[in-house]
Design a protein around this nucleic acid. Sequence first.
DNA 1: TTAGTTCGTTCGGTTACCGTACCAACATTA
DNA 2: TAATGTTGGTACGGTAACCGAACGAACTAA
Lengths: 393, 393
Amino acid sequence: MARRNLSESASKALAALLELGPSSRPALSQATGLSKQTISLAISELEDHRLVEVVTSQQGHTGRSASVYDLASDAGWLLGVDLGSTHLRLAATTLRGRLLVETEVSVPALSQSANTDLSQFAGDPIDAFITKTEAEHGRVQAAGVALSRAVPALTDWQAAGIDDHGDLASIAARLGIPGDVPLYLENNVNCAALGELRHGRATRHSDFAYLQIGVGIGAGIVTRGSLLRGEKGEAGELRRLPSPFTDGPEFADAEDALSVSGILARYAARAGTDSGISVKEVFRNVETDPVAAEVVRAEARGIAYLAVVLAAVADPGAIVLGGGVGQNAILLPVIEQEVRRRGLDIDITVGSLGDSATLAGATALAAELTLGALLGEAHAPRALLGYGGPWPT
Amino acid sequence: MARRNLSESASKALAALLELGPSSRPALSQATGLSKQTISLAISELEDHRLVEVVTSQQGHTGRSASVYDLASDAGWLLGVDLGSTHLRLAATTLRGRLLVETEVSVPALSQSANTDLSQFAGDPIDAFITKTEAEHGRVQAAGVALSRAVPALTDWQAAGIDDHGDLASIAARLGIPGDVPLYLENNVNCAALGELRHGRATRHSDFAYLQIGVGIGAGIVTRGSLLRGEKGEAGELRRLPSPFTDGPEFADAEDALSVSGILARYAARAGTDSGISVKEVFRNVETDPVAAEVVRAEARGIAYLAVVLAAVADPGAIVLGGGVGQNAILLPVIEQEVRRRGLDIDITVGSLGDSATLAGATALAAELTLGALLGEAHAPRALLGYGGPWPT
DNA sequence: TTAGTTCGTTCGGTTACCGTACCAACATTA
DNA sequence: TAATGTTGGTACGGTAACCGAACGAACTAA
């Protein structure tokens, strides 16, 4: 929805409100440097737009008690969509980023082929989720959608088409999202990075990398608090790096070597037979099965190679691991040892959001861009420090 | 020098002037959206600050002829310093980025050890250069200094110390730069990237990587028109990547393998004897010496590996090669072939500025930050599109 | 010389902000 | 319960920055 423009002072006040949390007018006056009357004007403007409301009045202190304002409870909510090849996850958060609802929808139709293009859409389940959530929490303000493909950086999402499959409006329609809801698309790994940045392990960092190892491999890189996208939106697409393994089975690239299929191939090559083991079992059997232990050690060394590459190119302050493979904390000691052996000292951890990282990031994306559009470029960055917070897991 | 603050409209007018080049008041009015009177006010404010002046009047058209304004010729100039381990290069440019003077000073004292810290300074030669250039072109406004070490990103250069060797003021003093001249330090490879961005081969790109192969290796990465620095200013420090070679002599890392010393080591290993050949000769003898040809082919494959790493992580729109080794265009066909073999399609070229890239970038750095400080953060980015232009080679 | 066009300034009005002053509502104290 | 001090919120006038309209200034074309 095209939000009518806010005045300069209203933007400042709203930015301060987002950063400080529920605040009285004097507090906002002090934070923004604007005078009391100007803040009053700004507040009434924001109230006219139904963006803020009085939530309480601050009593107990000496002197007259102040009205405390916060984002209106009916200011609407944000939709996050994690559209994977085998799953569809949906979440609703407030504008502040507090989780309202999180669900996983089983969509067998999605699982037929890799969701590398936009030809597969969700439709009904999303539509139903929106309808149901709007009944409880008001209007949906924006949607962030995580796709398992690179998404080109577009300066104007509304105007530009995404790819051959049509423009954003038709994508929205096929997703089951009303056409007047701003829609933001982003790569799923980049979303996961945003999720860990806003709600997870990386909240203290402005420069870090999220390294996802699972069915595929990829990284989301955050520099100065925002995503590194690159010329074609393909930054962090690590799959075509050379395989880090020099012995054992031949692999075309790093994704072949380190993803789920690579682990199974290496296990099969060692075990001699096609044992039908799953990756989960490989990790579970590390203590008892020497082949599994060897495969996992090699995996850790391979991940360390990716960490070294990320560190050399982007100098992240931390590397957060995710994905079905990367989430296994058992990998960490070997990874750290390998990285240290190369003279690098990087803080490497496992993400705290698990499989919800992507979903949390999709909502965070919607929040960033919604608030950014609302506040104007000038006031957005600092304001965004104020939202976020723990994502219940 | 602490430039007194400009009003909002004066900043806008100056930004437009920088972007458009010499302009009349009506042109600035149209470009900024400000009214004619406001532009007149802004112009007189800028004239009071001695920043702009009338350069000509636009005659020949119908109607009254307009005064055309441009940056004042006595608005001062910018100093660029390329402080290498074996050389000291100095340049002066206008605020627009037009080269006024470029010199190389022979400083044997610098060559004693690698300039990995700031303990070696230039002093007298820089002092003399400033004095001489100020006599001709007025006051020096700012200095950009390229160092062969990683430089941490500091939000406030004036306030923060750089490292154990002292604060910025004392560094300035030891460099021979007056203490009231704003001083900006940056890594030399990052500077070279800025140089190719503003004055060289990458002027059309907002996302690209400059890959320097010489005595050391490193990359400068530009995303959305500005340098990628990372948490500790070490983005692009590729030296600790694993060596891309699996046969031949053992190398500790990619820098060992691909820099000048690596080439010579590989040549020696192949030729069997320590032939005392130089890298220049290796490249010159490619046609006649099969060992040289083999070594150069391997070097190209190694550089292709770095290009693939850069492409995977940062998705640059182009890769520009530089440095004593990287400048050899003879490497390009093999590099491109290797990169294509990996399914990547990247535009790879040799930089157009040669050894002056770093120096050009040091001046560009000074220009960016000076104009950025002058215009305020809001108007700076677009304004900076306007400066630059060819660097005479 | 005159007409037409464009440049640049002068004038008055609007907008967004501030400081001051004043009223309103609370806690404390007597 | 009433007086008092403290803080919240509003009303009023002033200021700075900008705009549109009008007008004089300087040029070309005929």
